[in-house]
Amino acid sequence: MTGAAENILASVGGLPEASTDEVVRAIDVRKSFGPLQVLKGVSLTVRRGEVVVIIGASGSGKTTFVRCLNHLEKIDSGRILVNGHLIGYREVAGRLVEDRERNIARQRREIGMVFQRFNLFQHKTALGNVIEAPVHVLGIPKAEAIAMGCTLLSRVGLADKTDAYPSQLSGGQQQRVAIARSLAMKPRLMLFDEPTSALDPEMIGEVLEVMRELAREGMTMIVVSHEMGFAREVADRMVMMDDGQILEEGPPEQFFRNPAHKRTQAFLSKIL
């Protein structure tokens, strides 16, 4: 990577203003896929600038929960508030009614998401990926967006790859473009769904470097990951999920040294 990640958020004009101190407030979220209940009452609050890392076995519901936060998945009951707004639904006489697509799309502008499989737009260059939404969703003039996009890409160490297509980039490079793409929308919250799980080991570092820098610059982040070293270093809070519920949460040192639950102990012992 060309140079350490630095001043990433400066390229988008700094850390976005948060309207509330509580960026995420999930209250008793329940969800089933058909007969299978995947979330059995999850409640979580994340404050401005916090970095929360969620761990758990596969099937514990951690990915599903994060996808509910930007309404990529629907919920059956409970409430999710992001930046103070109920997300995905409107409250009508005490019941949840699915919100209009326009409103959901607008809310998603403030939430960035980074996927395990990058999901870069294959038919656009790296720069094209980054400026696509600013130009066509926010209406930012193309020249301005290009300038911002180039800066953003260079801040994540990809200055020389602006005109490369995703198929020409390595996994680590693609994921960094994906992060830049989300940041270009100036989100107040960034969601990461196992961002390094699909990467070859030698590329994990460059992505974590960018994420570490973002955390340092004060971005509110929720990260689903198995990277314990990263979690220990960067997380403000660890959350352990098991069987659709939050089993345990706490600051990393306490979490790693003295987990309260047996299952947490068992899980950690397997991966550490």
Binding site: A105, R108, R109, N119, M185
Partner: peptide
Amino acid sequence: GQTEAAKSVGMTY
């Protein structure tokens, strides 16, 4: 995944 990524940056259908 393309649709999901597009949705997550705020694009309408």
